[in-house]
Design a protein around this nucleic acid. Structure first.
Length: 138
DNA sequence: CGTATGACCATGC
DNA sequence: GGCATGGCCATAC
């Protein structure tokens, strides 16, 4: 009854994916986070690419509670999965330029609440030196 | 085991 | 700003 390589996981999503989903659920309505940001919150050895893999796996079905996948976009400020995703975000109040680029300085998530991060074994985004001010949405 | 593919990203032109 | 390239790394075949 032991699976040496897949310790603790049956056929479900990989453990690291579930951790990614935990963080993604923290992204507030009307805000976006980049794959790289989430990877940074998780810390090494998790990479942005792996975060992308985790999000892609959602296509096979949403876990419970569901993950607000539309709020995870790429570092260019563009959605990675097509118009549908952008529309969902626009319905949350996130605006995009005609070229399909959003302003990460305005709508970008600043990372999880420090207390939440600590309680869940993550670490908040470390602001190197200067702190970016998060502008309030209206 | 080699090869191809992907919801990434930094860099350089 | 757009486009190409290389690095990265897990999965699928």
């Amino acid at each position: 009854m032991h699976h040496p390589d897949r310790d603790g996981e049956a056929d479900g999503p990989r453990l690291v994916f579930l951790r990614v989903y935990e963080i993604a659920r923290q992204i507030p309505y009307g805000r976006v986070a980049t794959y790289g940001h989430i990877a940074q919150v998780m810390g090494p050895p998790v990479t942005a690419r792996e975060v992308g893999d985790a999000m892609a796996a959602l296509r096979d079905g949403q876990p419970d509670p569901p993950v607000p996948w539309q709020r995870v976009i790429n570092a260019q400020g563009r959605v990675s999965t097509g118009q549908r995703q952008q529309t969902l975000l626009e319905q949350e109040g996130v605006t995009f330029s005609v070229k399909g680029v959003t302003d990460l300085g305005r709508f970008g998530w600043q990372g999880p609440d420090p207390d939440w991060a600590e309680a869940h074994g993550f670490h908040p985004l470390k602001n190197e030196g200067e702190e970016k001010q998060q502008l309030d949405l209206f």
